[in-house]
Design a protein around this nucleic acid. Structure first.
Lengths: 136, 136
DNA sequence: CCTTGACCTTCCCATCATGGGAAGCCCCAT
DNA sequence: ATGGGGCTTCCCATGATGGGAAGGTCAAGG
């Protein structure tokens, strides 16, 4: 099967498949007589694996680690679990960071009249004027 | 004051100050006789404004909008509020997305023994083998 | 006066993962 | 044989940031 079909079957764009090959994440695909990349079910499964890992937020480097473990039949499941736990923690850190931003913003939004007058605590705060801060 | 001092006073790196100028987010700074950029308290305040907006997760484009509103004395606070509310919603969307990933991962982590045996539902799932899915 | 070190300038490159597009070759059906 | 769609490689762009090189400038101290 050609790259387009592999793309449709795996949910990974042709561009990305070539990119993964160029960066060494996946081995070079076989080539037809005329230079077209060819893929079989095994390669498609690998691409799907990558796609799912990406969907779970793993960065490429960790996807590479997961792929290596996947291919290593003598792996310890603990190693896989550690990678996954680290990713849970990484997601948690980013979630907390964004929730903090969101809470601050909600506070400011709440304090803003939102009418046709120009006075706005949101801008005042961004401008450095501390209008109302929680007492320490 | 030179760019380094303005950087220290605003919390924006010199690199970024030049970048903001190059992209038109801020007007070109004044120049000393020898070509050094010069900044006053007003410019530093603007830089701090930008930094705070970035800290709240606003993309550069929205920061630009906020700056324009900040400088517009006849603005309606409703316009500012809308921008802030949109940012709250954008953050919410990303938070939910990451929480979804996290929940899936936690589920998989929970199902993985994490010992020295190779069997691992995490890899099985990524590989496309549906081991246990919640009944619909 | 000259050196030294800290600072400034511009310009180019890298990140991370992805998409867009051009130029040119290939395959299949009409 | 012709047309349309698919494939190839190569270059460029994103968004926001940092790194670094090559060269000019400033202030302090010898």
């Amino acid at each position: 099967m050609n790259i387009g079909e592999a793309s449709r079957a795996s949910g990974v764009s042709s561009k990305m498949i070539r990119y993964y090959e160029a960066t060494g994440l996946i081995p070079p695909a076989g080539r037809s007589g005329s230079g077209y990349r060819t893929y079989g079910p095994k390669e498609v499964q690998t691409l799907r694996f990558i796609r799912r890992a990406r969907d779970l937020g793993f960065p490429m480097e960790k996807v590479s680690d997961l792929l290596a473990l996947w291919h290593d039949r003598s792996r310890a499941s603990a190693d896989v679990k550690h990678l996954a736990e680290a990713q849970v923690a990484a997601l948690e850190a980013r979630i907390v960071e964004m929730q903090t931003m969101q809470a601050t913003l909600r506070h400011l939004v709440h304090a803003c009249a939102g009418d046709d007058r120009p006075d706005c605590p949101i801008l005042s705060d961004l401008g450095g004027i501390r209008t109302a801060s929680p007492a320490p």
